[in-house]
């Protein structure tokens, strides 16, 4: 996992206030790091160094330990998610139906790798395990929209819908 992200941190005072409430709640509870990180990710969408530092100072746990936990669990991410979260199912059914080519086409189109976010903050790309829509394989979701039975040439048309 690359540790850097080209999109600058853009936290709001409201988010910080919410995080401080979380910190206040867990400050004196030992073993609460994962709970705090979970709620922090709910607030910010991801856990960049700025957020991890606030958590570190807030609950008095070293930053190195926090990063160790964040990088251990795949549910935590240090990269921001785009306005449109593109997810490609790489479950068995989707994969044998060509999901590999689908995700490659998306990577080329957006110029990003799995787990990354485009420089304009618009799209992020993730690969997922089976999402249970095998009948539609291969499947791509963009936020709550589901697209099935895709071929690579469908990709441009789908992504073009998300312009704003």
């Amino acid at each position: 996992m690359s540790a850097t992200c080209s999109i600058p941190f853009n936290g709001t005072p409201e988010q910080e206030k919410k995080l401080n409430t979380v910190i206040e709640k867990y400050k004196d509870v030992s073993g609460s790091l994962i709970s705090v990180l979970h709620e922090a990710q709910e607030i910010y969408g991801y856990l960049p160094i700025e957020v991890q530092k606030m958590v570190s100072e807030g609950i008095n746990v070293p930053l190195a330990e926090i990063y160790g936990v964040v990088s251990f669990y795949s549910q935590f991410t240090i990269k921001p998610k785009g306005k449109y979260k593109v997810a490609v199912c790489l479950g068995t059914a989707c994969y044998v139906k060509g999901a590999g080519e689908i995700i490659d086409r998306i990577k080329t189109r957006l110029g990003i790798e799995e787990g990354d976010c485009s420089a304009d903050g618009k799209f992020s790309l993730d690969a997922t395990r089976c999402i249970g829509a095998c009948g539609l394989a291969p499947v791509v979701t963009v936020n709550d929209d589901v697209y099935g039975r895709l071929v690579p040439d469908d990709i441009d048309g789908i992504l073009d819908k998300y312009t704003d």
Binding site: A64, I66, F72
Partner: peptide, 19 residues
């Protein structure tokens, strides 16, 4: 406390925050 175990499994590496 400037080093800890980062990542997991085969990718585990002892390093500092954000490596």
């Amino acid at each position: 406390s400037v080093i800890d175990a980062n990542e997991r499994g085969f990718n585990t590496i002892i390093g500092s925050a954000f490596n």
